[in-house]
Design a protein around this nucleic acid. Sequence first.
DNA 1: TTGAAACTTTGCCAATTTTCAAAATACAAA
DNA 2: TTTGTATTTTGAAAATTGGCAAAGTTTCAA
Lengths: 105, 105
Amino acid sequence: MSTSACCTPPKTPADFRAASAVFKALSNPNRLLIVDALGSGERCVADLTALVGLDMSTVSNHLAVLRNVGILKDERRGTQVFYSLRKPCLLNLFCCLDEFHGVEG
Amino acid sequence: MSTSACCTPPKTPADFRAASAVFKALSNPNRLLIVDALGSGERCVADLTALVGLDMSTVSNHLAVLRNVGILKDERRGTQVFYSLRKPCLLNLFCCLDEFHGVEG
DNA sequence: TTGAAACTTTGCCAATTTTCAAAATACAAA
DNA sequence: TTTGTATTTTGAAAATTGGCAAAGTTTCAA
């Protein structure tokens, strides 16, 4: 087994860079909207574009950002490309945020 | 009780903006280093400046970013200002990240 | 009240991000 | 093969970010 237990914070500069890269990918409201939508299943780019209400090229860029840090995976079927969460446990981050925002003091 | 259970993802545009603001604050490796250090207790600005190795004015700005989204609180004692985590449960985000990075497939 | 120490604020610059529009690519159907 | 639909890539502009240095503020001590 690894030397680090659950909840051990990242330690090396590389760890901090890797962690901040994921947070950076999630630091945009439109990308967060996309991740939230994909929590209930895969969607094609056209659907996601309608959801966020921006230019399709912009949405495509946001999807690339999320895919490049390992949050999303994509699969082409015909002319469409379907995006989905690579690991659904990513949504647990939202639980932590809810807890963070909810608890007083 | 509230209408939303634990782990319900954020839904309104304001929710997405609030959530992305927290992720944005955590999207910089130096700020992450600071948060990690504060996980084991409060530190003054001078100590944190030595830790991250940047100009004190830069560190002060990073601390303001983290404080403005509610991650940190500050307390002046004499000429020093001590920063600490406002809610330690924030560190749970790192657990989720570890899980995200660790699980295969 | 003068001075020093600890921070914060401001001004500035380089790098990055966010967005749209236009051009390019991939695929399927006619 | 030509056409049309879906998506990505490229180019460019506006906004934001991250950093340092200098100036300003706060507090305490001499």
